[in-house]
Design a protein around this nucleic acid. Structure first.
Lengths: 228, 228
DNA sequence: CTTACCCTGGCACTGAATGCCACAACCAGG
DNA sequence: CCTGGTTGTGGCATTCAGTGCCAGGGTAAG
C-alpha cells in the first residue's frame, strides 16, 4: 500500500481557497496541482473532476452514512434520522470547508447542481433503506415522501446554519425539525396498505359545487384516514 | 425577429437519437451540428452545453410552469398540485423524447445529476410560491417539506410511467398520489384553504372496508369527473 | 434606403478530461 | 537479498466541450 501524497481534506481545502480567491472558472487544475504539490494527472485520477474535488470529503461522508445504515437493522425511521444527523454533523464540524463552499455554490449554478445531486444521493439511500426494511421491492410512495421530507428538513436547518454559522442553537433546531418530520412520517410508514377483508363502509361527503377535484380527494383522504 | 433554423424540439429529438445510437460521451457536438443542420457554434449559443441540450424543452416547460403559478394567486396548494400536473403532462405527452432520455439518464450519472437539478428547480419554485402566499420572507420548514413531498410524489409516479409508458392508469395514479400528499400538507400549511361559499353537492360512495386508499380516491375521482 | 437588431457561422484558443506508458514505493514469499 | 505483483504517481499526447471575437445576412422600423 502506497500512502497518498496528500489527504483528501488537504486537497479540498486548497481547492476551496483557490476557488474563493480566483473564482471557480478561473482556477485551473494546473493551479491546484501546484498548490497541493500533487500532479494534475493524479488530481484527476483521485477526484474525477474539478467539481468533484470540491465535494470529495462529502463523498467520503456519504460512504460512511450508507455503511452506518446498513449496520442498523432496527427502528428504520430512527436510523434515518440519525443518518441525517451524521450528515448534518459533517457540515457543522468542518465550517472551514463547508461555509466558503456554500458561498461558491450559491454563486455558481453548476456547483449548485452538483450539491443538489449530493443531497439526492442521500435521499435515494434513505428511500432504499426504508424500503428494504418495509419489505418492499421498490420504494413506495410513502417511503419516498418520507425520505424527501427528511432531506428537506435537513437542508432547511442546514441552510440557516450556513448563512450564520455562529448560531448556537443549531442542534436544537435540527432536532426540532426532525421531530416534526418524524411525527409526519409515523402514520405514513405504519398503516395504509393492509387491505383486510370485511364489511362495506359508506362514505358521505358534502362539498361545494365547483370544488377542485384535488381538494375533494384530499378531503376524502382525510376522512378515510380519520375513520381508519 | 429572425426565425430560428430548427425548433428546440427537433434539436432535442436529434440529440436523443444520436445519444441513444452512439452513446452520450461518444457523440460530439460536431455530430449533432451535422445531424440538425445547425452549426456547432449556434448549438452552444442556444443550448449552453451538451447536457443542457438534452433537457432544453424541459427548461421551456419550467418557464411555463413558473408563469402559471405567478398567474394563480389563490388556493396555493391546489395551484402547486396543478403545476406538478403540468410538469407530469410535459413528460407523458412527449414519450418520444422523455422515455429514451430516461434510459440515458439511468445509465449516465452525470445526466442523472442534471435531471435531479431540474426537479430541484421545481421544488425551489414551489417553495418560493408557497412561501410568498403564506406571507413569509423565507420558506418555512413546513413549506419546504410540502414542496419536497409534492416533488417526491410526482417523481414516484413518473418513474413508474417511464418504466412502462403503456400504463393506462397513469393519471389516476398521479391524482391519487397528489391527493395523498395534499392530505399531508393541509395540516402543515396554515390559512391556505378557506372553503368558499356556493351550492353544495353530496357524494355517496359504497366501498369495501379495507380498500386501498389510492383505489378509493381513484373511484371518487372518476365519479366526480363523470358528474361534472 | 438606411439604421439598428439579432440570429447565424467560421475561427482560434483555453482548459477539462482521458488513455498510455514509465517509474517508484511497498509487500508478499523464495 | 531479489523477484514478481500491486498500487499510487508523473509526464505526454490527444480529444473535445465551451467561449470570445468578428463578419455576414436577413428582418423590422424609421
Amino acid at each position: 500500500m502506497v500512502p497518498t501524497r496528500v489527504s483528501t481534506r488537504e486537497a479540498v481545502l486548497a481547492a476551496v481557497r483557490l476557488f474563493t480567491a480566483e473564482g471557480f472558472d478561473s482556477t485551473t487544475m494546473d493551479g491546484i496541482a501546484e498548490a497541493t504539490g500533487v500532479s494534475r494527472r493524479s488530481l484527476f485520477r483521485r477526484f474525477g473532476s474539478k467539481e468533484d474535488l470540491l465535494f470529495a470529503e462529502h463523498d467520503e461522508l456519504f460512504e460512511t452514512v450508507v455503511r452506518y445504515m446498513e449496520a442498523s437493522p432496527e427502528r428504520p425511521m430512527a436510523t434515518v434520522v440519525a443518518a441525517a444527523r451524521l450528515v448534518f454533523q459533517g457540515y457543522v464540524r468542518d465550517p472551514e470547508i463547508t461555509v466558503p463552499r456554500y458561498r461558491l455554490v450559491r454563486a455558481h449554478p453548476r456547483l449548485r447542481d452538483r450539491e443538489v445531486a449530493m443531497t439526492a444521493r442521500y435521499q435515494a439511500a434513505f428511500s432504499r433503506y426504508l424500503s428494504q426494511h418495509a419489505g418492499g421491492d421498490r420504494p413506495s410512495l410513502e417511503v419516498e415522501v418520507v425520505a424527501a421530507a427528511v432531506i428537506a428538513a435537513h437542508n432547511h436547518v442546514l441552510r440557516g446554519w450556513l448563512r450564520g454559522p455562529e448560531d448556537g442553537r443549531v442542534w436544537e433546531r435540527f432536532d426540532g425539525a426532525m421531530a416534526r418530520v418524524a411525527g409526519l412520517a409515523a402514520p405514513l410508514l405504519d398503516g395504509d396498505d393492509v387491505p383486510e377483508a370485511g364489511p362495506e363502509r359508506v362514505l358521505v361527503a358534502v362539498y361545494p359545487r365547483g370544488i377542485a377535484t384535488s381538494d375533494l380527494l384530499r378531503r376524502v383522504s382525510d376522512a378515510v384516514a380519520r375513520d381508519d
